[in-house]
């Protein structure tokens, strides 16, 4: 008995939505950052599922690209977060309110 591909796609869509909602509602910078990673990994799941459904290896190759890019983003992102919140007690996005949009 195998799980149909559409279930994986739905799971990926749910994970992606959790990531989007997390970024829009959470105020902790690290949690927001993790939500971006969650979105990227939901995309990875989508790529792998489609790759399996289409019987085409390109989707799996895409995942490697995404992993590398996500790793690079983590390096820069954590560096930025450390630089920004070095002298603050907690990492809350609400503290960043000088520039008003």
């Amino acid at each position: 008995m195998s799980v149909p591909g559409s279930w994986y796609l739905i799971l990926a869509a749910v994970l992606f939505s959790i990531g989007v909602v997390g970024i829009l509602t959470r105020r902790n910078v690290l949690v927001m950052f993790m939500c971006v990673e969650l979105m990227l990994n939901a995309v990875n799941l989508t790529f792998v599922t489609f790759s399996r459904m289409l019987n085409d290896v390109a989707g799996q190759v895409a995942v490697f690209f995404v992993l590398v890019v996500a790793a690079a983003e983590v390096v820069v992102g954590l560096g930025l977060i450390v630089a920004i919140f070095r002298r603050k007690a907690n990492v809350t996005a609400d503290d960043l309110d000088i520039l008003k949009g």
């Binding site: 995309v43 989508t46 790529f47 489609f50």
Partner: peptide
């Protein structure tokens, strides 16, 4: 990430 999800769906 949104762009990438779009790419994944287009690929699908």
């Amino acid at each position: 990430a949104i762009l990438l999800y779009g790419i994944a769906l287009t690929y699908g």
